[in-house]
Design a binder for these strands. Structure first.
Lengths: 341, 341
DNA sequence: CTGAAAGCGCTTACAG
DNA sequence: CTGAAAGCGCTTACAG
């Protein structure tokens, strides 16, 4: 590894002068020296040692992306998370920073990763409220959360209008004549995106004079277990033939549901209508293409980095909580009920 | 930040003794001291400063995952890459290391990221042959490549039997009576996975006395542009009604193709058979479920980390090139030709 | 078993 | 504009 000292020797100056050139403090260096040193730096392919720099400056140029993980689930298998992380990394890089990615289990000590590397800021995906509380207690770097509804304290959060998403779905289905509508998704009892989508959905129905039949709420214990979703399809097509439509909390689940319905000779949208959530690639890959609630992942990722850097640059900047809009995308998975057999 | 020195002061010992305790060199410390110091470390929540440690040790505990990116494409949007990266991160963490993720454009200087942080090893996804050559010239950390067919030098690589994948597809389709078969995928002219899948496919056909009609090779310029795939569907269903089946180089592309065929009133598998590649989640989310060539991503990711650490622990370990097996998964997207109308 | 010294490669703060 | 000194928080190598 070539160092400041070697460059300084070769240029016949002190390491301070080289350091100033490396850091672009050209006002402190004579033009001749600056140019000569720059030439040597280029020729010798000098790369500053970030560990030394971090130690001296007590900061790092590292941003951490921290994902809530699970023993038996690959959290980056979720297209939503993967897309966000990919965009964030690119954005962080473009700002001259480095990205460390951590996947933490509940009991893991997040502060260790953050503190050991003097991480300058962190973006969190999928954390639970109680974890957020603990994270705040032990860390004081700028932090931004994605899709948190925690109200235990004022935090910077980038989320979407989950309530409106559910509300739009309810209105759209009822406008198409559906009355007996199912809700399919993870449990709605936790404070989070699912609960808000559910609330918007129920209130949307209520406005149309419909109340959700509790038996028509189908709860998945695990987000990604295909068998559970297939089982729900079976129940709907066998035990609940009166249901004509479903609002499903993710495109992923919706696609399995449609597959399962089809296997039970219930065709979408002829016999049954489905609305998904997210507007992921998969919503255009299946047949019929999925009518869904879209969220803008690119904006979500970029804004989260923007908000983080705002706080990073001015430590007393107020926390920011942004709610991005959602919209209903009409495709082929919903049909008016009149056409149904 | 609490430091070694503070712990040493509080314990009334030198920082060396504390350092030995922190690093588990308990044979060098008296039992009483060790226990007292451990207690203080726990109470004060001491976390070693990795930047200082790295500087002193001239290494880091950081592994880099480097993905080939593209201006207008999110490389983590590929479920294949996202799943691999997720598993790798978890594995790297479980070994006590940290993961930095870089998404590089062609002209980017990879050695900068690697050298500035004293990165101890790197795993590369999606690099081209000429880039690999350059990477090797300027870096000397252990490196593992994923899915590279570069033969410019001996390198550690984890890949799959792409040739066999194509071969299996050809045999399976011909055994089901198909004769006029299309190949759909990215260009086959570059040395890489696609070329080998294509070669296996062509040779598989040849063994059955069939040669691929050059007009039946449909080439996609961009892997993910849905419109291009839909256009191919149109061509096949309108201009090439004699084609009865297709081997497609990814499940992603296959799903769009099936959707496009359907839009042109060609139903899979009744009118047309399709085999995909990867066995991603999507292959079970669409209707019909996709018959496809499966690769084991979990094994691929874990082995790549294993091989990297083998080289990292013994610097003169030979490079390892592993080829994982593939298998054909029978689902619903292929039907015998006799049943076709 | 224990610790004083030197050094890792940088930056900060200061003197000239 | 230039540089000598001190220090960031650790580890290595050595002496006791």
């Amino acid at each position: 590894m070539i160092t400041l000292k070697e460059i300084a020797n070769e240029a016949g100056v002190s390491i301070m002068t080289v350091s100033n050139v490396v850091n672009g403090n050209l006002s402190k260096v004579s033009k001749e020296n600056a140019e000569r040193i720059q030439k040597i730096i280029r020729e010798r392919k000098y790369i500053p040692n970030s560990t030394a720099r971090s130690l001296a400056k007590k900061n790092s140029n590292i941003i951490a992306i921290i994902l809530r993980g699970d023993q038996n689930e690959n959290t980056l298998q979720s297209p939503h998370n993967a897309a966000l992380v990919g965009i964030m990394i690119q954005k962080i890089q473009s700002l001259g920073y480095y990205t460390m990615v951590n996947i933490v289990q509940s009991q893991d000590d997040i502060s260790k990763s953050l503190r050991t590397w003097n991480v300058e800021g962190a973006i969190f995906l999928g954390m639970f409220d109680d974890e957020i509380e603990r994270i705040y207690q032990v860390n004081n770097v700028p932090m931004v959360f994605i899709d948190s509804y925690s109200n235990v304290r004022q935090l910077s959060n980038i989320g979407i209008d989950d309530y409106k998403g559910g509300y739009l779905a309810a209105h759209y289905l009822t406008k198409h004549g559906h009355q007996k509508i199912a809700f399919v998704g993870p449990p709605t009892k936790h404070n989070g995106v699912i609960q808000h989508r559910f609330a918007g959905f129920c209130n949307g129905l209520k406005e149309m004079g419909i109340s959700l039949n509790p038996h028509h709420q189908f709860t998945l214990e695990s987000e990604t277990k295909a068998e559970d979703i297939i089982e729900i399809s079976r129940k709907i097509s066998v035990d609940h033939r009166d249901i004509t439509a479903a609002f499903v909390t993710s495109d992923q689940i919706a696609s399995y549901l449609i597959h399962g319905l089809h296997a039970n000779h219930v065709n979408v949208p002829e016999d049954f209508s489905v609305i998904g959530f997210d507007n992921l690639l998969i919503s255009t890959q299946i047949t019929p293409q999925l009518t869904t609630i879209s969220q803008n992942l690119t904006e979500k990722a970029n804004l989260s980095v923007d908000v983080l850097f705002k706080q990073l640059k001015s430590p007393d900047a107020p926390t920011e909580s942004l709610v991005l809009d959602v919209a209903l995308i009409e495709r082929g998975s919903v049909a008016p009920i009149m056409q149904q057999s």
